[in-house]
């Protein structure tokens, strides 16, 4: 009996381990794809800003840069403006788009959380666009995005202090 138990528990252990391995593999793969897609967006963000901010006066503050992105850049890319811009005045900005173009017509059979999870990768490209646009306007930042209900998307921008 003891022998049996040992085998079954070691089997159990093994399957837990391999499941964990698979999960790590999956996460790594996701991470690699994220980096790729985000990188594509980054270049696009850089290019767009270069083209469309050239005739403007220099932005005085980061908030002005944010407003430019929410109004002009978003309009240019998605034909609408960001619906809501929030900041904690300590370098964090949250941009919310209540009817985000790329998610507008998305649905999955299972619906709900399944749709939200599967829609997530579609936010990686615009994350990159935002980061690239900010970078070319002199604002170093990290950008992550999430959606809690289709088609709402919010982008969390954490600007990095430049000392």
């Amino acid at each position: 009996v003891i022998g049996e138990r040992t085998t079954s528990s070691s089997n159990g252990m093994q399957s837990i381990l391999s499941e964990k391995d698979a999960r790590i593999g999956e996460e790594e793969r996701r991470g690699a794809v994220f980096k790729h897609v985000e990188g594509l967006g980054y270049r696009v963000g850089q290019g767009l800003v270069e083209r469309f901010s050239q005739d403007r006066p220099r932005f005085a503050e980061v908030l002005d840069v944010m407003k430019f992105i929410c109004k002009d850049l978003w309009q240019l890319i998605f034909r609408k403006q960001i619906d809501n811009l929030k900041t904690n005045h300590r370098g964090v900005y949250v941009l919310t788009d209540n009817s985000f173009r790329l998610l507008m017509r998305m649905s999955t059979e299972a619906g709900g959380l399944d749709t939200v999870t599967r829609a997530q990768p579609y936010l990686w490209f615009p994350c990159g666009v935002l980061r690239g646009a900010l970078a070319n306007l002199g604002v170093q930042a990290t950008v992550v995005a999430e959606t809690t209900a289709i088609p709402v998307a919010s982008f969390h921008v954490q600007t990095l202090r430049q000392d």
């Binding site: 594509l40 270049r43 696009v44 290019g47 767009l48 083209r51 890319i77």
Partner: peptide
């Protein structure tokens, strides 16, 4: 329609990658 530059830049980004 979408902005033409957006298309151009996105395609360029894809090819470069």
């Amino acid at each position: 329609k979408v902005n033409a530059e957006l298309v151009t830049l996105t395609y360029g980004s894809v090819v470069a990658q």
